[in-house]
């Protein structure tokens, strides 16, 4: 399995641990990632309010690059916002002759054109449908060992386009977690919005969503996320009383996978998670690494 990898800006910056854990986990699963050469920003949620055309041209540039340089490969995006922006080009531009023409006229300014032939995939889609839950379970074993995890899907991988999961009752991440031996924390907040960029423009409003989500996660050992903005919003304001004073570790699904594979903490950059303190890390270590190493002795591992 081989994919054209689109990390997106966040994964080069504050969500570096997502990038590192995605690469580590995919490597373990025998999946090859080839980074799209010279990729640029997808526009996130900022392009749409500013320019309709730019909202399509920015992600289309990256698909055009993938089509040209990495022909035949699906694009894999770990970030939900990147995923949706790229997918939108296929759903809204391709097939609309006038808009497609405009987008390609714009792309011509950087010597590119997008024909419409690149399939866009989110990492969760690839994990569940290409790698397969059984294969993950076979590599990982049951190493999360009863760790209680709240699967948080967020919005943009489920909506507006129903691609690889039921947007009303998503299960893909539940299945990956169960395959790792985790217990699913029962909650209704898995597809609730985290506030996204509203946390910057109107934090007083977004904080209500974060409070509701963190409150419902009480009792879970961790929340698992697959989007850098969900991750940031759910973990960065736990110190803020407006977020309800709930303290729940928030980890990327790929970090949990990495730990379950037996990777050491630094290999998934656990020190970059702002919602983890020393005792929480010790707790996660005890749970996620409670597998018997070949020598038979209990290994605490890590630093």
């Amino acid at each position: 399995m081989k994919y054209a990898y689109y990390p997106g800006c966040s994964l080069q910056e504050s969500a570096h641990e997502f990038d590192v854990s995605v690469r580590a986990v995919m490597d373990r699963l025998g999946v090859e990632l080839v980074e799209i050469p010279d990729w640029t920003c997808c526009g996130a949620s900022a392009a749409e309010p500013v320019s309709r055309l730019m909202n399509y041209a920015l992600p289309a540039r990256n698909l055009a690059l993938a089509e040209k340089e990495l022909a035949g490969l699906d694009v894999l995006a770990p970030c939900s916002a990147c995923y949706l922006n790229l997918l939108k080009v296929n759903r809204e531009v391709v097939g609309d002759k006038s808009l497609h023409g405009q987008v390609n006229e714009a792309l011509d300014a950087c010597g590119l054109a997008y024909g419409g032939g690149v399939r866009v995939r989110h990492i969760l889609d690839v994990l569940v449908n290409d790698v397969g839950v059984e294969a993950i379970g076979a590599v990982v074993g049951q190493n999360l060992n009863g760790m209680r995890v709240a699967p948080y899907y967020g919005c943009q991988i489920l909506r507006p386009y129903e691609v690889f999961d039921d947007p009303r009752k998503p299960l893909s991440m539940d299945n990956v977690l169960t395959a790792m031996g985790a217990k699913i924390h029962p909650w209704e907040m898995g597809a609730r919005c985290c506030g996204a960029s509203l946390m910057v423009t109107h934090p007083e409003v977004a904080m209500h969503s974060v409070e509701a989500i963190l409150g419902a996660a009480e009792g879970a050992d961790a929340i698992a996320t697959v989007c850098p903005l969900c991750q940031m919003n759910l973990e960065a304001y736990q110190h803020d009383s407006a977020a309800g004073g709930h303290h729940v570790p928030v980890l990327y699904l790929t970090q949990l996978l990495g730990l379950a594979f037996g990777l050491e903490e630094p290999a998934v950059l656990l020190e970059k998670n702002m919602s983890l303190n020393g005792s929480m890390r010790a707790g996660i270590r005890a749970r996620a690494w409670r597998h018997e190493p070949p020598g038979g002795t209990e290994e605490a591992g890590g630093t």
Partner: peptide
């Protein structure tokens, strides 16, 4: 948490032509 980085200027101006073109259109 080591989440802040010095800006990477290696792609400065890469999208200049695209932005200019979209503005013109």
């Amino acid at each position: 948490a080591g989440k802040l980085h010095v800006p990477d200027g290696s792609r400065k101006g890469r999208l200049k032509a695209l932005f200019a073109k979209v503005r013109e259109m």
